[in-house]
Computed example of a mutant assay.
Amino acid sequence: MRLLLPVLAGALLLSACGNDAGVSPDPGESGGSPAADVTGTWGDVDNPDAPSLDFSPDGRVSGTDGCNRLMGHWSISGNHVTLRDVATTLMACPPGMDTWLAAGAAADVDGGTLRIYDQAGTEIGVLER
């Protein structure tokens, strides 16, 4: 029992040092194709009524659908981005405003274009870098 306690304490310390930011490692390190660079802003951030997303290097994503704020986490494999735990505010939006971005569950990076997909895998919109 005396030997088990230091081993468990060491394992706990090592597990606390892990990367829990949500960003997948570069698949190129294991022989696959390198991950696309999704970090930074997508969409028209100067227009508060336009959808936009900001992907932080720490695995967090935030933005707006043009009416409501969005926040959550992301990870990437190759050029495919998975959005997780996305929460949104629930403001009353003007009639006719298309808040499609709030339904985003995944995206594909294609150069300077980010194609957004819903849970069913249907493309629901596009954001430009």
Rank of each mutant, 00 (worst) to 15 (best):
S56F: 10
L70T: 01
W100P: 04
T41G: 15
H73M: 07
T89L: 03
D110A: 13
A102V: 01
P6G: 04
S56M: 11
L4D: 15
D26G: 09
T113P: 04
G96K: 00
D37L: 10
P27Q: 11
R84Y: 03
P94D: 07
P25T: 07
A105P: 04
A21C: 13
D110L: 09
P51G: 10
T39F: 02
I76Q: 05
L101D: 02
P51V: 05
V81D: 06
P51R: 05
F55G: 08
R115T: 15
G28D: 11
R2N: 15
N68T: 00
G111V: 03
E29F: 12
V61T: 04
V81A: 11
G28S: 13
D46S: 14
G66S: 07
S15N: 07
P95D: 08
D65L: 00
L5K: 13
V38M: 04
P25S: 04
L114K: 08
M97G: 01
T82S: 14
T41Q: 13
A50E: 13
G22S: 07
R60M: 10
F55P: 00
G10S: 14
A92Q: 11
V61I: 11
D37Y: 03
D49W: 01
L4T: 15
L83I: 07
D110C: 01
D110Y: 01
G66Q: 08
M91T: 09
P57G: 11
L53H: 06
T113K: 11
T89N: 05
G10C: 09
V86F: 07
G104C: 00
N47W: 01
R84P: 02
S77E: 10
V45N: 10
D85W: 00
A107E: 03
L8I: 14
L90V: 12
A120T: 13
C67R: 08
D54E: 14
L13I: 13
D54T: 15
T99R: 11
G111C: 03
L12W: 08
D98N: 14
A120P: 06
L3I: 12
W74G: 06
G72P: 03
D49N: 12
T113C: 05
G96F: 00
V109T: 02
M91A: 14
D54P: 02
T113I: 05
G104F: 00
A102N: 03
W74Q: 07
W42R: 04
G66R: 05
T89I: 09
P27K: 09
Y117P: 04
M71H: 13
A87Y: 06
S77Q: 12
S77H: 08
S77Y: 06
V61L: 00
T39V: 11
R69D: 12
L90Q: 15
A50K: 07
G31Q: 05
T41V: 11
N47Q: 05
P51H: 04
D118F: 04
S77M: 05
D46H: 10
I116Q: 08
P6A: 03
C93I: 01
C93Q: 01
G66F: 02
T82V: 07
W74I: 00
T113H: 04
A103R: 07
S75G: 15
P27T: 10
